[in-house]
Each structure stands twice: as structure tokens, then as C-alpha cells.
Nucleic acid binder design. Structure first.
Lengths: 215, 215
DNA sequence: GGATGTGAAGTATTTCACAGCC
DNA sequence: GGCTGTGAAATACTTCACATCC
């Protein structure tokens, strides 16, 4: 019923697991481990070895029978597949409390995501410095996005502004959005969005606390 | 192969969607809407009406044929099902940059999650005040958890401490953990954990930016 | 007429199990 | 002997379609 001209080929769940494999492999690499089996990876990730092998098989044959996977080579291939072998420039929209925390979070840079621009609508903060970034007016979005070759944005604005901001980002050519507002914005086909919503996570866990206590 | 003595009954994906339904219903309630159809809910949530009806049918019959669902009643039932009709006391472990941001995040309280205790291992911050909470030593975990009837914890400690902290929390009777560290800790059957990891989210999106550009 | 609730049908995803290779 | 890669089987999840009721 929906447009499916982009041969979906690889299931979305598979793609969502690859970054986790990357994580573990990075850690193994740091620990000086050079070869790993799907069995061992599965233990660390709490998934079945078969799933790991199947997931990887969508992209090629990276292992050696009887031996396992070369940590270095698999790492390399996964980075290539995910497109994280190069740097990505990222914009942050909204520099309130949450936005500031994001800008100051040191975890993005080591993985190749460079926060290179900040935006806000609030006149009081525009022009000020937040975590080493000059805060631009949202009106300058297009020019800064073009200039700095930004294709990813992190959104941390109030709920009431979120859809509007997302629309503007998409209009300026942003292809991937990480949204921290407690709303699921609509985006057109071809634009990716992931929502980070701790309250939803908590609420889905309380269900299980209850049902196993009494009931 | 794994222990499945807890009649799984309701699929986990279904439970994970209920909080989103709750969100939308809350908003409809605020807007003064009293009745809603699965059709209308589906549009707002970008899911099929059939899925909403099926999801709800795991828990009972809440609608009226020819009419739809009473926003008030459905809200009530969902809150009951998810166990968010009462307050939950929550502990935050780790009050570094990230932990502070979490403590100061105003979004938990309106949904009934009360941050009532903070913990850290760092002697320099123990005893100090963070966002209105006194920071305890982790050594006092058990007594505070018992005293304040805490069953949920938010973890924001360095990767290297995370598994250890999670183990201690579980040992003290914590049933649900929201983990912000970039690692997937192991927990025993019966304990729920959700991981918030913005880098993984970003990495799963770059895959799509790449594959639709060139390739 | 219009919308729910739900078996049945259709898809998607996971796991099995084993041939093939190191 | 050990482990990958992969069709086939099993399971999980979604959507259809319609009887049922307001």
C-alpha cells in the first residue's frame, strides 16, 4: 500500500543492530582481541549466534569457517556499511537545559559526530556561546547547513515547536534527525528520525513490575 | 530453550506502544476531545487502526462499536495497565554532567516519576546538593532504597562502573533500570532494563543516508 | 451507518540444522 | 574439530476482512 520503490532488501531491525556489533568490536579491538566467533559476540550482546551470522550475511561473507571473524576486518566493514568511517557534521536546535547538556555531552565526537552548529529562536541566547558553539538564529538555518555541510540534526526544543522545527530542517535538506522532544514528529519518506524519550521507556517497564508482583 | 515460565501472553512490542497511546490520549484530553476512533489515533501515531485495535484487545474491550473510544476511560484503563496511575520513586545513580542534566530534567515528574534520591561514588560530591537532592554514597543504597520504597533507577555512571552499579541495584531489589551508559548491561530474568544511547541511534540513521545517496 | 473486536491470512523475523570450508 | 553461511522451519507480528453491536 505504501511506496516501496526503495528495494528494502535489508530489514530495518538488522540495521538497528549493527551499531551494537560495532560497539562490542571496538571494545574487543581495544582489548587486543583479534578474532571472535558469532558465539562469543552473541554472549556479549545477549543475542543468538545465528542471528549475528544471519545479520552479517545480508552484507557479505566476512568470516572464516572454523575460525570466526577478524575483529579488525569486521570493524572496518561495518563502519563502511553504516557510513561511520567518515565524520558527520551535526547541528543542535534548541539550547535550553536539555540542548546544553547535549552540546556538552562528550560521547558524540569519538564516534565521528561533530557538533558544529547550534540554533535557537530565543533572542536572549542567539549570539551567545554554548559549549564552544555560537548560537545562530533559526533564520540562518539554510545558509549554515549548506556552508557546513550538515546532514544530521539533534532537536531539543519545546514540544509546541518541534514539528515546525523538524519541517524546517527537512526543508533545508537534513536527512536524519535525533529528536528529544516528547512527541513523534512526522517526516516525509526518505528522512530518518529517531526519538529519545525516557518517560516512554520508564512507562513500558512499570507494566512488567506490576504484572509480576501481584495480578 | 530459555526459561519461559512467565506466560508471555502480551507481546513486548505491544507493551512498548501503550505509552505512546497514553501520550496522545493525554493530549486529546487536554484539547477537550472526548471520543476518538482507532482511525484517528492511527493518523496521529502513524500506525494502522487495526494495530491499535488489536493492541488494545489484549487487555479488554474498551471501545463502543460505531462510536470509538472514550478518551477519558481509555486513558484511565491504560494508566492502570501500565501501572502509571500511581507515583513511582526513582533513584539516580551518578551525578556527573549527565546525571545532573537528568536530575534537572523537568519531564519526569508530570508523568508520576519522582526522583527522590541521588547516589555517587565520588567523595567530592557525596553530601552535596544536586537539583534539590542530597547525594548519598552508594554504600547507603540498600537502606535508602528500602526506606524510600524505590523500585526504579536511572544509571548515568561511566561505562567502566556500569555493570557493577547495575548488579548492586538489582541486588537491592530494583526492578527497572534506565541506563544512559553506552553499554548493554546484563540483568537477571525478571529485571527490566532500557538503554538510552544517542550514538547508536545516529549510527543506525547514517546507514540510510548513505544507501540512498549513492551506491 | 459506522466503528469495534477478532479469527484468519499474510509478512516479517528468528532460529534451526547442516553442507561446506578452514 | 570448529565455525561460517544459508535455505528451510518455526515463531512472532501485522494486516485483512467481516460478523457484531451501538
Amino acid at each position: 500500500m505504501s511506496t516501496d520503490f526503495s528495494r528494502s532488501e535489508v530489514p530495518e531491525v538488522v540495521v538497528s543492530r549493527l551499531p551494537q556489533y560495532l560497539r562490542i568490536l571496538n571494545r574487543l579491538m581495544e582489548d587486543g582481541i583479534t578474532v571472535v566467533s558469532s558465539q562469543q559476540l552473541g554472549e556479549k550482546l545477549q543475542v543468538t549466534p545465528a542471528q549475528i551470522r544471519k545479520d552479517l550475511s545480508y552484507f557479505g561473507r566476512f568470516g572464516k569457517q572454523g575460525r570466526g571473524y577478524s575483529v579488525h576486518d569486521l570493524l572496518d566493514r561495518l563502519r563502511q556499511i553504516l557510513g561511520v568511517n567518515a565524520f558527520w557534521n551535526v547541528a543542535v536546535v534548541g539550547v535550553g537545559r536539555l540542548g546544553r547538556a547535549i552540546v556538552n555531552y562528550p560521547g558524540f565526537t569519538p564516534d565521528g559526530f561533530h557538533l558544529v552548529a547550534a540554533f535557537d529562536v530565543n533572542k536572549d541566547v542567539i549570539g551567545s556561546d554554548v559549549g564552544g558553539l555560537m548560537v545562530h538564529s533559526l533564520e540562518n538555518l539554510r545558509s549554515v547547513v549548506d556552508e557546513r555541510k550538515i546532514s544530521i540534526a539533534i532537536v531539543a526544543v519545546p514540544v509546541s515547536d518541534t514539528q515546525e522545527v523538524v519541517d524546517q530542517l527537512v526543508a533545508c535538506g537534513i536527512r536524519a534527525i535525533l529528536n528529544y522532544a516528547p512527541i513523534i514528529p512526522h517526516v516525509r519518506e526518505g528522512v530518518r528520525i529517531r526519538n529519545i524519550d525516557p518517560v516512554l521507556s520508564l512507562q513500558s517497564m512499570t507494566y512488567y513490575i506490576n504484572t509480576s508482583n501481584d495480578d
